[in-house]
Design a protein around this nucleic acid. Sequence first.
DNA 1: ATGACCGGTTGCACCGGA
Length: 254
Amino acid sequence: MEIATWNLNSITVRLPQLLEWLQENKIDVAGLQELKCDTDKFPYDELKAAGYHVAVNGQPTYNGVALVSRSEITDVSYDLPGFEDDEKRVIAGTINGIRVINLYVVNGQDPKSDKYSYKLAWLKALTAYLKTELEAHESVVVLGDFNIAPTDDDVHNPKAWKDRILCTDEERAAFNELLALGLTDGLRIFAEPKGQFTWWDYRSQGFDKNHGIRIDHLLLSPRVSARVMETKVYLNVRANERPSDHAPVSVVLR
DNA sequence: ATGACCGGTTGCACCGGA
């Protein structure tokens, strides 16, 4: 069973690439982010025709998340409970006994901005939410675009990124709080070479030069972590014509 | 490098992204 995450940066533009990637790789479950598409404008028919169940928390222009799955999705929930927020950044569902929680974490823009305070508050509410989810479910996968590069090894040029958004000590501490709930960073289960990234700037030939960062993650509860056989970063998808700036990332479970 | 590139908008330059 393969569970993946991909920030599409517009499902309207990326739909053909999404369908091709799902089919070619027989992806079982995917959390999608940055749909930039309202819930009622989601391409339900195309995903259904490809053999997928879907659950959507959409928003026009910004944000928007969805789960797509070959198996049925039950107990779907939306947003962070008890957190006042108009932005559509969270959708969760249960698939084959696994609680899959799909996140599009706040970017934060700049450490001095209001958006940064919002990001830190959002992450605090997320931590509380995940704590209750982990108490309620043994098999949990928290995946998505976390907009945090957890360590300097996750950045092509740590000096240039030092204290910049996605790399501040506070954001990294918040990420470690998530791990401290008992979650494992899926892409770090096996020894990976340095320079394994998931996002590359469209500008300055970022992908060609592998000037990237690792900000898309799959965090796994122990029950799931023990099942991981393989992890994947779909560089070939990032190499497509008219790509998203993020590559799909996945774990394969036994 | 206050840069670049991309998607979306009610647009015809901007904002946000990361």
